[in-house]
Each structure stands twice: as structure tokens, then as C-alpha cells.
Amino acid sequence: MGSVRTNRYSIVSSEEDGMKLATMAVANGFGNGKSKVHTRQQCRSRFVKKDGHCNVQFINVGEKGQRYLADIFTTCVDIRWRWMLVIFCLAFVLSWLFFGCVFWLIALLHGDLDTDYKDDDDKSKVSKACVSEVNSFTAAFLFSIETQTTIGYGFRCVTDECPIAVFMVVFQSIVGCIIDAFIIGAVMAKMAKPKKRNETLVFSHNAVIAMRDGKLCLMWRVGNLRKSHLVEAHVRAQLLKSRITSEGEYIPLDQIDINVGFDSGIDRIFLVSPITIVHEIDEDSPLYDLSKQDIDNADFEIVVILEGMVEATAMTTQCRSSYLANEILWGHRYEPVLFEEKHYYKVDYSRFHKTYEVPNTPLCSARDLAEKKYILSNANSFCYENEVALTSKEEEEDSENGVPESTSTDSPPGIDLHNQASVPLEPRPLRRESEIGSRR
């Protein structure tokens, strides 16, 4: 089982795998120059863009038009607004034209077009017409509009002379109601789609790998820009990579689940303020055997998904993003964004995407760390350097704002901070800030 798991979770494809794949392509008759073999020097295209759209195009789909027309309502909801407006206008105009032609044909076959009612006051002739005051196609078209929109100006009306005319008036009224219901329903469904809710759900630009509770963890940050909550919010993550099976089958995008606390339930989050999602790199993680150097040379993509129900409509929305291997910062942490004021908490989104480097973060893999092949620094050293990194950030910001350097908390000259780390230190809580992250 261990060997199978290692093969499945191998992220960085070796040169031997690339040569094996190329040999397979030639042997199977696919070596026509169009096949692409992804190596370390040639990274694959992003499968999920940063804005959440999937970078996929469908080609050679059989009976595409028929399949889309069979699900016309979903098609109308998914198309762009400009095409929705075109369909909206065409549906009414074509129905008016169709029934206008029908009423014109009825008048033509009944002989109503030969009668001039402007110079004739004989009401008996008017009563013999199928539709009064309809003696041309324009008049028939206007009567069709008046019937379907129930305008009723009063000059044109159907008589009991022709039952077919009466039937067409009733039929057009029913068709008009159906068109109204369909168009209004599609427009309302399109307006109520929770897709735009994703514009106020954000992911951090970069993911980070750092120590948390004595273990290497992959972390990324999510935030909600609205005050309205995302009900039943939960997160998922998958690692996408290519691999070759033991039988020699090439899988271009193998999807591997990344555990973010599904078993323990901590994948469900209360997204009021930005939260750091934590994936513990343990023996079940696809990143277990990867060191910093392996991450730098790897070719994979981590897709992160945030799902929840919109509070206003109770409709489920899904926000997506992805991180390539070069977008994962090893040995970094996110800057705090949640600050405790006197009577409330304040979230500073200008710090949302910012990170700071944490010294002495192990550069080895989580496996080597678990097997004690890498000796961690003293816990006080880690905490102290973590505090120094934050303090230096604040000093830089104070210097930019014009604060005198004498007010900063610099260490005395001639003292090495790293050498001082081995000395037991008193706890130094942050002056006014605390970061709330997901705790395992």
C-alpha cells in the first residue's frame, strides 16, 4: 500500500517518465508532432483561472445545437444578457408577425380586404367582416399587437362572423401568456443567479507553507467582502497533476483530494472575517514527500473551492481559484488583518494578500521532518523571529508614515537576534492585533 500511495502522490514527473511517455506515443502511432509532453521546463496551462473560470474549450460535440435547444431554459439562463435581450425582442416580434399574417390571411380569404370602410357607412358590411377595420397587412399586424398586449384601442375587434378568427384570438392570448411567463422566468432566474456573489468572495493571491502546531501546513486565505453571511460555508481543495499509471496509461489531469478537515468538520467555516484555511501535510497528503526545492521545480495546480448558500436567496454559490506551484510561498505567513478595537473588531483588507517571511522554516519535506531528519529550532526562537518579522513590518510602515526611528523597538546594537533566540524570552503579545485562523 505504501508503494502504491507514493506512486499515486508523486508530484514532480521525472525525466524517465517523460521519455517513457514519448516512447509510448511513438510506439502507439501518436508521434505526429502534435502531442505535447509536459516536462519541468514546460509548465501546463492553468486549468482553473484565478477568477474561477475553467480554462476549457469543448470541440467536436455531436448534436450540440439539439442538446442546447432541448434544455432551452438553461440555455437562456446561461447566455449573455445581450443575447437574452435579442431573444426577448424576437420572441414578441415574431409572435406578433405570425398572428398578424394569420389574421391577414383570414381577412384575405373572407374577402374583407376588398371592402373600403372609410367611404361605406353600411354597418351590415362591417358585421360581415371577420375582424372589423382590418383591410391590410398593417392593420392585421396592429390588431395582433393589440390582442397579445391587451391594449385594446377599440377600432379593431373580432366579430362572430368567422369562428376561426375567434379561435385565433383565444389562441394568441394563451401563447402570449406562455411567452411572458417564459421570458420573465428566465430573466428573473438569470438575475437571481448567485454567480455575481463570487465577486465579493476573495482568495489570497498566494498560498503559503509554514509551520503550525509543530507541523508543516499548506495555507491559503479566504474572505467575504459583504456583511451578509454565506450560510453553510465549506471549503474543498484538489491537486491536479499528470501521472502515468503502473500499466503505462497517461492521465493528463489526475485529481487528488486535499484534506482540509472534512473528517473532523473544520472544513465548515464561519466566514465573517478572513480565515486562513489549513491543510496539514501528513502522510496522507500529496505534498508529504515534497521539499522546498521540489515545490520550486514541480508542475501541478491546486484548485480551491468555497461553497455556501447566499443568505438573501438561499441559492448555492461556488467560488473557485487555483494556485500553481510557483504561487506557493515556502516559509511565509499571512499578515494579520483582524484588529481588536474598543467595542468592535476591524478588518483591514489592505493586508489581505500580504505575507511575511518566517525565518528558520524547515526546507525539507514533511516526511523528513516526521522522521527527525531535520532538527527544528527552539520553539522560543521560532516565536521570537516570528515577532521580529512582524515588528520589522510595523517599523517599515512607521518610517513610511514619517514616525521617528527613535520610537521604534530596535534591538541594541551589536546583538545578533538569531543568537539571542536560544535565550528564554518573556511572551510578547501583539500590541493591538490578533489573527483569527482556522485551528486544527
Rank of each mutant, 00 (worst) to 15 (best):
residue 2 G to I: 06
residue 3 S to R: 02
residue 6 T to K: 05
residue 10 S to W: 02
residue 11 I to A: 12
residue 17 D to W: 03
residue 19 M to L: 11
residue 20 K to V: 04
residue 20 K to L: 03
residue 21 L to D: 12
residue 21 L to H: 12
residue 23 T to C: 06
residue 23 T to E: 14
residue 24 M to T: 12
residue 24 M to H: 13
residue 24 M to N: 09
residue 26 V to G: 13
residue 29 G to P: 08
residue 29 G to N: 13
residue 35 S to C: 07
residue 36 K to W: 04
residue 40 R to T: 14
residue 41 Q to F: 06
residue 42 Q to M: 07
residue 44 R to C: 09
residue 47 F to H: 08
residue 48 V to N: 02
residue 50 K to T: 02
residue 54 C to F: 09
residue 61 V to T: 10
residue 62 G to Q: 13
residue 67 R to K: 11
residue 67 R to F: 06
residue 67 R to H: 05
residue 71 D to R: 15
residue 73 F to T: 12
residue 79 I to P: 13
residue 81 W to K: 07
residue 81 W to P: 02
residue 82 R to P: 12
residue 86 V to G: 05
residue 87 I to R: 15
residue 87 I to D: 15
residue 93 V to G: 02
residue 94 L to Q: 02
residue 97 L to Y: 01
residue 97 L to C: 04
residue 101 C to I: 03
residue 101 C to A: 09
residue 105 L to I: 06
residue 106 I to A: 02
residue 107 A to Y: 05
residue 109 L to H: 15
residue 111 G to E: 04
residue 111 G to R: 04
residue 114 D to V: 12
residue 119 D to Y: 04
residue 119 D to A: 01
residue 121 D to F: 15
residue 121 D to W: 14
residue 127 S to W: 14
residue 128 K to D: 04
residue 129 A to E: 04
residue 133 E to D: 07
residue 135 N to F: 08
residue 138 T to R: 02
residue 138 T to W: 09
residue 139 A to E: 07
residue 139 A to F: 02
residue 140 A to Q: 03
residue 140 A to M: 03
residue 140 A to G: 03
residue 142 L to G: 03
residue 146 E to V: 01
residue 148 Q to V: 01
residue 154 G to T: 04
residue 157 C to G: 06
residue 158 V to N: 02
residue 159 T to D: 05
residue 160 D to W: 01
residue 161 E to C: 02
residue 166 V to A: 03
residue 172 Q to P: 01
residue 172 Q to T: 03
residue 174 I to S: 02
residue 174 I to N: 03
residue 178 I to L: 15
residue 179 I to D: 05
residue 181 A to K: 09
residue 181 A to T: 15
residue 183 I to P: 08
residue 184 I to F: 06
residue 187 V to D: 00
residue 189 A to F: 10
residue 189 A to E: 03
residue 191 M to E: 04
residue 191 M to T: 06
residue 192 A to Q: 09
residue 193 K to E: 08
residue 194 P to Q: 12
residue 194 P to E: 06
residue 195 K to W: 10
residue 196 K to Y: 07
residue 196 K to N: 15
residue 198 N to S: 12
residue 198 N to H: 07
residue 200 T to Y: 11
residue 202 V to F: 05
residue 203 F to I: 05
residue 205 H to M: 07
residue 205 H to Q: 14
residue 205 H to C: 06
residue 209 I to P: 00
residue 210 A to K: 01
residue 211 M to N: 02
residue 211 M to K: 08
residue 214 G to L: 09
residue 216 L to F: 08
residue 220 W to N: 09
residue 221 R to F: 01
residue 222 V to E: 00
residue 223 G to K: 11
residue 225 L to F: 15
residue 226 R to S: 09
residue 229 H to N: 09
residue 232 E to I: 10
residue 233 A to R: 06
residue 234 H to S: 12
residue 235 V to T: 05
residue 236 R to W: 05
residue 236 R to K: 10
residue 238 Q to V: 13
residue 238 Q to P: 00
residue 242 S to T: 13
residue 242 S to D: 13
residue 242 S to C: 11
residue 243 R to E: 06
residue 245 T to F: 07
residue 245 T to S: 10
residue 246 S to K: 14
residue 249 E to S: 08
residue 250 Y to M: 15
residue 250 Y to A: 15
residue 250 Y to D: 15
residue 254 D to T: 04
residue 257 D to L: 04
residue 259 N to S: 11
residue 263 D to R: 09
residue 265 G to D: 03
residue 268 R to H: 14
residue 268 R to I: 05
residue 271 L to H: 05
residue 276 T to K: 03
residue 279 H to W: 00
residue 281 I to P: 00
residue 282 D to K: 10
residue 282 D to Q: 05
residue 283 E to L: 06
residue 289 D to Y: 03
residue 289 D to M: 08
residue 290 L to M: 10
residue 293 Q to L: 12
residue 295 I to V: 07
residue 299 D to G: 06
residue 300 F to A: 00
residue 302 I to S: 00
residue 304 V to T: 09
residue 307 E to L: 08
residue 309 M to T: 09
residue 309 M to A: 12
residue 310 V to W: 09
residue 312 A to S: 08
residue 313 T to C: 10
residue 314 A to K: 06
residue 318 Q to M: 13
residue 319 C to S: 11
residue 320 R to C: 07
residue 322 S to C: 03
residue 322 S to G: 04
residue 323 Y to G: 00
residue 325 A to P: 07
residue 327 E to D: 10
residue 328 I to V: 12
residue 329 L to T: 03
residue 334 Y to H: 05
residue 335 E to Q: 04
residue 335 E to L: 07
residue 336 P to A: 15
residue 337 V to Q: 00
residue 338 L to R: 01
residue 338 L to A: 13
residue 340 E to C: 06
residue 341 E to N: 13
residue 341 E to P: 02
residue 341 E to D: 04
residue 341 E to G: 04
residue 345 Y to D: 01
residue 346 K to Q: 05
residue 347 V to K: 01
residue 348 D to W: 00
residue 350 S to T: 11
residue 351 R to Q: 15
residue 352 F to S: 01
residue 354 K to H: 12
residue 356 Y to R: 15
residue 358 V to Y: 07
residue 359 P to R: 05
residue 367 R to I: 00
residue 369 L to C: 09
residue 372 K to H: 13
residue 373 K to L: 10
residue 374 Y to P: 12
residue 376 L to K: 06
residue 377 S to G: 12
residue 380 N to W: 03
residue 380 N to R: 09
residue 381 S to G: 12
residue 386 N to V: 07
residue 388 V to F: 12
residue 389 A to P: 14
residue 389 A to W: 06
residue 390 L to I: 13
residue 393 K to V: 08
residue 396 E to C: 08
residue 399 S to E: 13
residue 402 G to P: 13
residue 403 V to A: 13
residue 405 E to S: 13
residue 408 S to W: 07
residue 408 S to A: 10
residue 408 S to G: 09
residue 411 S to F: 07
residue 412 P to D: 15
residue 412 P to R: 10
residue 413 P to L: 10
residue 417 L to D: 13
residue 420 Q to T: 11
residue 420 Q to C: 08
residue 420 Q to V: 11
residue 420 Q to H: 08
residue 426 E to K: 03
residue 428 R to A: 15
residue 428 R to C: 13
residue 429 P to G: 08
residue 429 P to V: 13
residue 429 P to M: 15
residue 430 L to C: 12
residue 430 L to D: 13
residue 432 R to N: 15
residue 432 R to F: 13
residue 432 R to T: 15
residue 432 R to G: 05
residue 433 E to H: 06
residue 433 E to W: 06
residue 434 S to R: 15
residue 436 I to S: 15
